[in-house]
Design a protein around this nucleic acid. Structure first.
Length: 513
RNA sequence: GCUUCCUUAGCUCAGCCGGUUAGAGCAUCUGACUGUUAAUCAGAGGGUCCCUGGUUCGAGCCCAGGAGGGAGCGCCA
């Protein structure tokens, strides 16, 4: 009852106040503490605002239609001016640029404008006009300014000036409001969309492989356990070990480290498939290139052999970079200017030049005869170190490299054995600054050879009998690869830490937000 | 997990060889300015020098332990 009376009183106040005064009465009222259910009917009191459809900043900045009434809503980046004229830069995330709102300060007294501060959220109705000042072509002459959400300028953590990426990581809930993260997140979206677009246009089917897996034989690293058992008092078997038959799935389960094995099953029926989903690795990796939770794209194609797998990887990567260059020009220009002056040049180079293909054995020869001294020696049979990969990509070839035919000992059990019996049909795509962006292979389709490799590498065959069935019934050559999505975003944005290209990074000792 | 560097105002960072009351720019507040572009100009307020202990007449600075963060390496995508 008391609330109802208060609402009626406020309506009366608002309706009898001058038009400029209304929004501020509204914002100062105790009603702001109440639910949106109460806020909505009150905002209907502004018929001009409601009858006007909101335009995005992106739409307004590219508009040719001037001298018309528009409504824009967004967050204030800066406000400046004097007692006669005020300039408010508003950003709504639709584009990296702000729209400049010009307010006649005599119409909007300082007392009313004081809540229009950096970080506050505003709705502005006004006329879209050609700008009188330099720096922008259009601007809005404000007729009405409504503060939708105040922001205490003293407490707001984002400043007009540069804030370090490390500090932004600690306030990851607010960093999308910065130019940098706005740009990164828009590029990230564009790349995700481009991936689906590429596969769809090329006859691939999107397959959803499970996030929770019952097999711990995927062979791609430490896994996170999924359980509903009590951590303090789990049920025990007679010999004292934890009784997982009592667990939710009746067995031990984990978060997936790869969708590949299930992807292969689908490829052996649908022909060309891809997965694009979250992947989890419980490795204690503390680097700028690793996350505990990341997104991976894994295409798998029946009848493809190693050569065709490489063709697909190269065309795929070039198409994605090209898409970003075409669709994210403003964001990439900003990142190029702000962080990495060679970014755009590098992206164009990747699109325009064929990747260098060579075997592991050839790479070892090049590294052995290299004049540069390495911290770790190069030896046939050992895996290449980061410094070796970087030498090949950045110094020797100066272009993306695809390394193939690695020694079988350093690669996974499912990779197809070469005729010499020493190497497998693996391929790693190495990118400048990133290292391994893609890892893949032609798969071993021969049942006997596959089970022999599994025995040698102590991979339990009974747990993977479903996987082996593809080799038992109508087996076929097939190949695929995994692309780390964040590593792609890292490359395209020119950021240097993978924690800065995912909204809420997960890494050892950190699961905030 | 290993190596190494860092932690000083809300933010970015100075702070000499261990020596008086710890500084600057931005932000905030007050004032000035009729078209600004990270506006500008003048003034004011703002500090657990990451924490704990030690050395010293005296510690932001030296030593030990801890916490948080960065970079490099390993594992990988």
């Amino acid at each position: 009852m008391a609330r109802k009376v208060e609402v009626l009183y406020l309506r009366l106040l608002i309706e009898t106040a001058s038009p400029q005064r209304r929004p501020f009465l509204f914002n100062d009222s105790p009603i702001k503490r109440w639910s949106y259910g109460y806020l909505c009917p009150l905002t209907i009191r502004y018929p001009q605002v409601m009858s006007l459809k909101r335009s995005t900043v992106q739409q307004l900045l590219s508009s040719q239609e001037l001298d018309r009434e528009v409504l824009v809503k967004g967050w204030v980046r800066t406000r400046r001016g004097n007692k006669y004229v005020q300039f408010i830069a508003v950003n709504d995330g639709s584009i990296i640029h702000n729209i400049q709102v010009v307010a006649d300060a005599e119409k909007f007294p300082e007392e009313d404008l004081k809540y229009v501060t950096t970080g506050s959220c505003v709705a502005i109705r006004g006329k879209l006009v050609a700008s009188q000042g330099k720096g922008q072509t259009v601007e809005i002459q404000a007729a009405e300014i409504t503060v939708l959400g105040k922001s205490d300028a003293e407490a707001y953590p984002l400043q007009k000036k540069a804030t370090s990426l490390e500090h932004l990581r600690e306030i990851a809930h607010l960093r999308p409001r910065t130019n940098t993260f706005g740009a990164v997140l828009r590029v990230r979206h564009a790349l995700a969309f481009a991936i689906h677009d590429y596969f769809n246009k090329n006859g691939f089917f999107y397959v959803h492989t499970p996030i929770i897996t019952g097999s711990d034989a995927e062979g791609a690293g430490q896994m996170f356990r999924v359980t509903t058992l009590s951590p303090e008092h789990p049920p025990r078997t007679a010999d004292g070990s934890v009784d997982f038959s009592e667990d939710f799935f009746g067995k031990q389960t984990n978060l997936t480290v790869s969708g590949q094995l299930e992807g292969e099953l689908a490829a052996m029926a649908l022909g060309s498939i891809y997965t694009f989903g979250p992947t989890f690795r419980a490795e204690n990796s503390n680097t700028a290139r690793h996350l505990a939770e990341f997104w991976m794209i894994e295409p798998e194609v029946a009848f493809n052999e190693l050569e065709e797998n490489m063709d697909l990887a190269e065309d795929f990567l070039q198409s994605l970079v090209k898409y970003a260059l075409e669709h994210c020009a403003d964001d990439l220009a900003f990142l190029n200017e702000q962080y990495d002056k060679e970014l755009l040049g590098r992206l164009h180079f990747v699109v325009d030049n064929a990747f260098q293909r060579l075997t592991y054995t050839e790479a070892v020869e090049i590294l052995k005869s290299a004049k540069q001294k390495f911290e770790f020696p190069v030896d046939w049979g050992t895996d290449l170190q980061s410094e070796h990969e970087r030498y090949l990509v950045e110094k020797h070839f100066k272009k993306p490299v695809i390394l193939t035919n690695y020694p079988k000992e350093i690669k996974a059990f499912y990779m197809k054995l070469d005729d010499d019996g020493r190497t497998v049909r693996a391929m790693d795509v190495l990118f400048p600054g990133i290292g391994e962006i893609i890892g893949g292979s032609q798969r071993e389709e021969d049942y006997t050879k596959l089970t022999t490799r599994m025995a040698e590498m102590h991979v339990p065959t009974d747990e993977l009998d479903w996987y082996l069935d593809t080799r038992r019934f109508g087996t076929a050559p097939h190949a695929g690869f995994g692309l780390g999505f964040e590593r792609l975003v890292l490359f395209v944005t020119g950021m240097s830490n993978i924690r800065d290209v995912i909204p809420f990074p997960r890494y050892p000792k950190n699961a905030a937000f």
